[in-house]
């Protein structure tokens, strides 16, 4: 693998999950505020060096979902889908996993390069909440790590997992939610048409689902982004296949 590469890692999560604490703990004081394509909301960026690589961490706005109900949600969603970070870290609050998982499942519909961080495990332990992360990992089909951003525990494993995902040593099979037959029928009607337009650049099942959900502004955004993409020449992450979840 090449050295001195810069990889973009996006942090997504609900508000109050300690996402920013994790971001701060990982990046230290090497931060600045960057403007992203939307340019309405600026996102904090910082970098981490690990094994000769540089990870540029992008702290997405804390949101409850990614259905573009608000500017923050739209910014977070657009970043994950259109800017295609090499890895998306979804930070979950161990003390309210049920609600937090909603967001993880939504991210997993958008990209397969997902790592789930279950944060605040110290807090959860105090409250008598036990989380079986191996089982959770098998259920979700993506790496799951327990961390405590406050106490800076679980970071080595997290950085190592990021490293291995970037090197293509981990391949994921994100849990795909099955909707009822009627919805699935409509999705499969739309997917071929979406594919025809956007090819493999953007996740077509997810786009179909958003369209069915009445998210009309999404198509305008896609059109805009496709033209931008033709002009710029960035490298998207190369998905590798073959290895399985058992590898990690």
């Amino acid at each position: 693998m090449t050295t001195n590469e810069v990889y973009r890692i996006a942090l997504a999560g609900n508000p109050n999950t300690g996402k920013s604490t994790l971001f701060n703990a990982l990046t230290g004081l090497k931060q600045h505020t960057g403007n992203w394509a939307g340019k309405t909301v600026s996102l904090a960026e910082g970098s981490v060096h690990y094994k000769k690589n540089t990870y540029r961490l992008i702290d997405l706005p804390g949101t409850y979902s990614l259905y573009s109900n608000s500017t923050d949600e739209e910014v977070a969603r657009n970043y994950i889908v259109f800017e295609k970070p090499h890895v998306t870290l979804v930070v979950l609050d161990a003390t309210s996993l049920e609600r937090n998982l909603n967001l993880a499942l939504q991210v997993m519909e958008m990209t397969s390069n997902v790592i789930v961080c279950v944060n605040l495990i110290d807090e959860a332990k105090k409250r008598g909440i036990e989380i079986d992360e191996l089982k959770l990992m098998r259920q979700l089909g993506v790496p799951v790590l327990k961390i405590s951003a406050r106490n800076k525990t679980g970071f080595p494993a997290l950085l190592d997992t990021i490293d291995r995902m970037i090197r293509g040593e981990i391949s994921t099979s994100p849990y795909a939610i099955q909707y009822n037959d009627e919805t699935e029928g409509k999705i499969s009607q739309l997917v071929p048409n979406v594919k025809k337009l956007v090819g493999d650049r953007f996740p077509s099942r997810w786009i179909a689902l958003r369209l069915l959900d009445g998210d009309t502004s999404l198509l305008d955004e896609i059109q805009k982004r496709m033209h931008q993409e033709e002009e710029s020449t960035w490298n998207t992450v190369q998905k590798t296949s073959g290895s399985h979840l058992e590898n990690f």
């Binding site: 979902s65 259905y67 109900n69 608000s70 049920e98």
Partner: peptide, 11 residues
Amino acid sequence: GVMRRRLLDLG
């Protein structure tokens, strides 16, 4: 509308 969505998001 949006408020419904938000409430559903929150559980």
